[in-house]
Amino acid sequence: MKKNLFQNMKKTSRKNLVTYLICFSFFAAVRIMGATDNLTRHFSSLLVPICINVILAVSLNLVIGFLGELSLGHAGFMSVGAYAGCLFAIKFKEILPAAVRLPLAMLVGGMVAALFGLLVGIPVLRLKGDYLAIVTLAFGEILRSVIINLNFTGGASGLKGTPQDATFTAGFAAVILTLFVILNLADSKHGRAIMSLRENAIAASSVGINANGYKLMVFSLSAFFAGIAGVLYGSSVSILSASTFDYNKSIEILVMVVLGGMGSIRGSVIAAALITILPESMRALADYRMLIYALALIVMMILGTSEKFMLLRHALSPRRLLSKAVKHFRYKKEGQNNG
């Protein structure tokens, strides 16, 4: 059978291509809807939050899915990045045009968040599992309290006056950048080293993988993107308030990662988009949001370990159904030719 270019590609590159395609077609669809005036105001207000959540989920997946450590402080990194980037943007409001200001603010926010990722990473290197989760959780809460009590962050009343630079295009570009970096990393020597630590840290050390170094790297890289998402968020709201970045925000990101499947970047993208859209579309259930998240997590945990469900999922996977359909079609055709 002749193989086309798509089939000749490495399996991982093929998977990644599908992920990019999903993103670009979503972007194109929104643009077309916008051009033909089919975009509701409600939906267009969700576009930037979708981008923010996708970046957050994908970057948290790097820690949870690839490194295999549970971090509950992602909202903390997001807040650090948001404040750093927004303060930068306010400072250069008059000097720089928006097209330069936002990328620079993102870079600043990302760098500062990465620095904090490194700072948190160092003491928690010796911790694993639940203990690491507790420390990162505490870190997020500490950051929030500190920010509320500082003057230059606007304190409890929040930071005002950030230029509203965040557009869907900018958010989309940031999403693609995040995906590009993290998908590439996953398919490289550094990515394999990270995954080997998840699989078996002792064996990884025995073949020359610097476990502490890679943990720090993952923590700060993940924080970098959380910082970028934070800047995007800060540039899309009129008042940046520290109370947004609480424990519930971290859990919300965690839910996206778990729902999408730990270690699956494409899953994170889709889950993040859905979790952004669904609660807004079902306002009536808004009060029960955390309850639904908790239930969804429990159901996912049960289904994720159930063999029967895995078999069912395999049987119903789009690729399988597609190949079945193709086979069926061919068979029919051959039958016609013969008969």
């Binding site: 590439n184 490289s188 020597k189 990515g191 080997s196 990884a204 073949v207 020359g208």
Partner: peptide, 28 residues
């Protein structure tokens, strides 16, 4: 102690880690 969820080839490539000359920017 293998990296059970990684492919056979990737297991060996983790072993080759320090022999592969790919810089961090190149990986990204």
């Amino acid at each position: 102690r293998l990296f059970a969820n990684m492919s056979v080839l990737d297991n060996v490539k983790v072993g080759l880690h320090n022999k592969i000359k790919t810089s961090f920017p190149a990986s990204l």
